[in-house]
Simulated assay, not measured.
Amino acid sequence: MTTDYQQAREPLGLRLRELRLSCPDGRLTGAQLAERLGFGWTKSKVSKLENGRQTAGAEELRAWAQATGQPDAYAGLLAQLRGFESHIRSWRRQLSAGHRPVQEAITAEHDRTKVLTIWENNLVPGMLQTADYARHVLTRHANLMQSPRDTEDAVRARIRRQEGLYEPGRKYRVMMWEGALYALVCPPSVLAAQLDRLTSVIGLDTLELGVVPFSASLKIYPGNGFWVYDDRRVVVEDWHAELWLDNADSVATYLRVWSTLRESAAYGADAQNVISRARRAVNPR
Rank of each mutant, 00 (worst) to 15 (best):
Trp177Asp: 15
Val102Pro: 02
His99Trp: 05
Ala193Trp: 04
His240Asp: 08
Thr139Pro: 00
Leu16Gln: 08
Leu16Ile: 04
Ala216Met: 08
Gly164Thr: 04
Ala252Val: 10
Leu37Met: 04
Gly30Ile: 07
Met176Thr: 05
Glu50Lys: 06
Ala56Trp: 07
Ala271Asn: 09
Leu191Gln: 13
Gly164Tyr: 08
Gly126Glu: 02
Pro222His: 03
Asn283Leu: 12
Pro213Leu: 13
Gly76Asp: 10
Ala183His: 14
Arg17Asp: 03
Ala97Glu: 15
Leu14Met: 09
Gln162His: 11
Ala180Ser: 12
Trp227Gly: 02
Gly203Tyr: 11
Asp196Asn: 07
Ser147Arg: 01
Pro11Cys: 12
Glu152Met: 04
Tyr221Met: 11
Val251Trp: 12
Arg232Pro: 05
Gln103Met: 15
Gly179Val: 10
Trp64Ile: 10
Gln66Pro: 00
Ile88Met: 12
Pro222Tyr: 02
Ala278Arg: 01
Thr139Ser: 09
Gln94Cys: 09
Thr117Ala: 09
Asn224Arg: 00
Lys219Gly: 15
Met145Thr: 07
Thr139Gln: 10
Leu204Trp: 02
Arg149Cys: 07
Arg89Tyr: 02
Gly13Thr: 07
Arg256Ser: 14
Val124His: 05
Asn283Ser: 13
Ala131Met: 12
Ile118Phe: 01
Ala278Lys: 04
Pro187Leu: 12
Gly40Trp: 10
Pro188Glu: 13
Phe84Trp: 14
Arg149Leu: 01
Gln103Asn: 09
Thr260Trp: 10
Gln194Val: 01
Gln7His: 08
Met1Gln: 08
Gly76Ser: 10
Asp205Ile: 01
Val102Tyr: 05
Arg89Asn: 12
Ser189Met: 10
Arg15Gly: 02
Ala73Leu: 06
Tyr254Ile: 09
Arg53Ala: 02
Tyr74Ile: 12
Leu116Phe: 00
Arg280Asn: 09
Tyr5Glu: 08
Glu178Trp: 13
Arg158Asp: 14
Asn121Trp: 07
Asp4Phe: 01
Gln272Phe: 04
Ser96Arg: 10
Gly126Ile: 06
Val228Trp: 03
Ala31Glu: 08
Leu123His: 12
Arg161Thr: 09
Arg256Pro: 05
Trp64Arg: 06
Asp4Leu: 14
Tyr166Asp: 05
Arg15Phe: 01
Glu18Pro: 00
Glu35Gln: 15
Gly210Asp: 05
Arg160Pro: 00
Val212Gly: 03
Trp41Gln: 04
Leu81Trp: 12
Trp244Tyr: 12
Leu138Met: 11
Trp91Ala: 10
